[in-house]
Amino acid sequence: MKSKLLILIFLFITHIVSSQENNFKESEIDIPTKTQIIYGTLLTPNSVKKPPLVILIPGSGPTDRDGNNAVMKNNSLKYLAESLSNQKIATYRFDKSVLTFTKKDTLKIKALTFNTFINEATSVIKYFKKFKNYSKIIIAGHSQGSLVGMVASKNNADAFISLEGAGRPIDEIIIEQIAKQAPYLKEETIRVLKELKQGKLVTDFNPMLISLFNQQVQPFLISWIQYNPQIEIKKLTIPILIIQGTKDIQVNIKDAELLHKANTTSKLKLIENMNHIFKEINGDVNENLQSYSNPKLPITPILTTTILNFINQLK
């Protein structure tokens, strides 16, 4: 009897402690669009009547609402959302529609373009705007999601945050990466990208580039290449915060500087030792790469503080 009582007391105390750890409530919010349902998680801070809302847009590839994919789990976006919501900021993070596709969804895969992601983000913003439950709506796009967020934010959001976002068109970045990793394929890559930029599908190219330029990917690349982050960010008349980690091995500091230069009203914050997924790296490249598959490693607290200061200064 005593042991059962002790267990009950322990469970009760554990419940209280776990409830105190997070100062928000969590709910699943499904948002319908013209083509797809967007599945996401809303965190609402306790005892705040009309909090600001930060909508987090995930990066490239099959990245989910938490910043994870099938190969790597790091919980980067999950930790950022929870960290902000514990500081009285509502957050919504969502899965891109591509994560719901199966091999049988050939028509959806063929129809997928960069504009698909922009339309989805725009639908999410408009969904929350219509309820008028938030004092401000801020878009925070990570990596590829930065460009998506820039375009979707125009005339829709109160502020925009670029998290490790590229400052150049994707074709320039691809050429730069190929030049470093396989310089003998650089000229071939330039040729293919030039045709794609003109809206042409390419069938004849070096087989070594098949993973980059396979027929299913090309329509997506054609639509993505049309967007220049420097041009898109220049169109924004809302407050802008550009955040870049100095240990990011995927996006260069010069990209953040290009974005800042393109829109001089923006604020630029370089966070020392932060990598692409918001983790603090004090060692070498191996430590950096290992962090991508370490879901227990927290994000650097400076990131949360930087975003909070930016939101608190919004009028």
Rank of each mutant, 00 (worst) to 15 (best):
M1Y: 05
S3R: 14
K4S: 08
I7Q: 02
F10L: 15
H15F: 15
I16Q: 10
V17I: 15
V17H: 07
E26I: 13
I29F: 01
D30T: 14
D30L: 02
I31R: 05
I31D: 05
P32F: 03
T33K: 05
K34D: 13
K34P: 03
I37T: 15
P45S: 02
K49F: 06
K50T: 11
L56C: 04
P58T: 09
G61L: 07
G61V: 11
G61W: 06
P62T: 09
D64E: 10
D66M: 10
N69G: 07
N69F: 14
V71H: 11
M72T: 14
K73F: 11
L80V: 09
L80A: 07
E82S: 13
S83Y: 06
Q87M: 12
Y92T: 06
F94S: 04
K96L: 03
S97I: 14
L99Q: 10
F101C: 09
F101K: 08
T102L: 13
T106F: 01
K110R: 14
N115C: 03
T116Q: 12
T116L: 03
F117Q: 11
I118K: 08
N119Y: 11
E120M: 03
A121I: 04
S135W: 10
A140N: 06
G141K: 11
G141C: 08
Q144N: 09
S146V: 07
G149Y: 10
V151Y: 02
A152I: 06
N156D: 12
N156Q: 15
A159R: 04
I161Y: 01
D171P: 03
E172I: 01
I174M: 11
I174T: 08
K180C: 01
E187C: 01
E187K: 12
V192R: 00
L193C: 07
Q198V: 00
L201Q: 06
V202N: 01
T203S: 11
L209P: 06
I210C: 00
F213P: 07
N214C: 06
Q215M: 10
Q215W: 00
I222K: 11
S223T: 13
P229W: 02
I231F: 12
I233N: 10
P239I: 04
I243K: 05
Q244D: 03
G245Y: 01
T246H: 06
T246K: 04
T246R: 05
Q250L: 06
N252W: 00
H260E: 06
K261R: 09
K261W: 00
T264G: 01
T264E: 09
T265A: 13
S266N: 03
S266P: 02
I271L: 15
N273C: 02
N282H: 13
N282R: 12
D284M: 05
D284W: 10
N288R: 05
S291P: 14
S293H: 13
S293V: 12
P295C: 09
K296Y: 14
I299C: 10
I299Y: 05
T300F: 03
P301T: 08
T306M: 08
I311R: 10
L314F: 07
L314Y: 09
